[in-house]
Amino acid sequence: MPGLSTLFAKEVADHFRSKRIIILLAMVWLSGLSAVYIAAQSIREAAAGTEFVFLKIFTASSGALPPFVAFVGFFAPLLGLALGFDAINREQSSGTLGLVLSQPIFRDTVIIGKFLAGLAVIVLMLVSIVLIVSGLGLWFFAVPPSLEEALRIVAYLALTIVYTGFWMALALLFSIFFRRITTSALAGIAVWMFFFFFMSMIAGLVADNLAPVEEQSVESVLRHERLQQAISRISPVTLYNEATITILQPRVRTLGPVLVREVVRMVPSPLPLSQSLIIVWPHLVTIIGLTLVCFAISYVRFMRQEIRAP
C-alpha cells in the first residue's frame, strides 16, 4: 500500500509530540509507580514467601492507594480516547485531509495508518510501564517471577492492549461521525462514563425487575445474579475487569455466583494458566470483536464520506 509507512511514521511522531499524550503518559506512570511502591511495602511485611508473590505487586493495595491494575483500568480507556477522538475530524477542519488525499495514496491508507499508529503507541506505553513495574518488583523482592507468573503478565499486557485498542477504535469512529472535535471528545467520555459508573447500576435495576429475588428461594437469587452478570457483561469495562482478575489472581476459579455447598468441594489451589485462559477466552474474543466492529464501521463510513459536505 503506497504511503502507509510514511503515514504511520508521521502519526506515531505526532502522538509523541502531542502534549496530551505526554501528560497522560506521565499520569499513568506516576500513579502506577506510586501504587506499586506502596503495594510492595505492605507485601514485604505480610505476604513474603507465599505463592505468586510477584503478581501481587500488580493487584495488592495497602488501602492508601488503589492497586496498579485499578489505575491502568482507569487510564487505559482515557488513553485510547485521547489517541483517537480527533484523528479524522481535526484533519478535516484544518484542511490537511484534502492535502493528504490529493497525494497518490488510497483513501483507506489514511484510516489504516492512523489505527496502526495508535496501536503502536498503546503497545509502547503499556509494555514500558509493565516492564518498569516488573523491574521494581525484582528490586523489592530479589526473587525473579516464575515462568507462569511471567506468562500471566504477558497475558495481562495483551489483554490491556486489546482493551485500550477498543477505546481508540471507538474514538476513531466518533471522529468520523462527528465533524466537531468537542462533540467527538464528549461522546467518547460519555460512553466511557456510562460503562464505567452506570452500567452495574442499570444491570442491577433490570435484574431486579426481570428476575426479582424471592425469599427463601436459592433459585431466584441465582437467577437474579446470573441475569445481572449477563447484562453487565455488555460493558467492555466489566469484561476487562473480570478477565484481569482471573489472569492475575490464579485462585479465581469462576466468575459466576458460587453456592456454599459447591465451595466446600472445591480444591483450594490456584488454577494453572491454561485454565485461567479458558475462563477469560470469551472475554478477550468479545473485546477484539467489539474493536473490529468499531473499526469496520469507521472504515466503511470513511470510504463513503464525501470530501466536502454538499
Binding site: T6, G95, L97, G98, L99, S102, Q103, P104, I105
Partner: peptide, 29 residues
Amino acid sequence: KRITGYLPENLGFYEELTATENLRYIARL
C-alpha cells in the same frame, strides 16, 4: 494523483511542522 497537483480551496498544512517538514511529508507520500 501522481501526475496532477491539486491546490484545494481550503488548503491546510500541519501547523506544528515547519515549511520544509510539510513539503518533505508530501514528497514522501
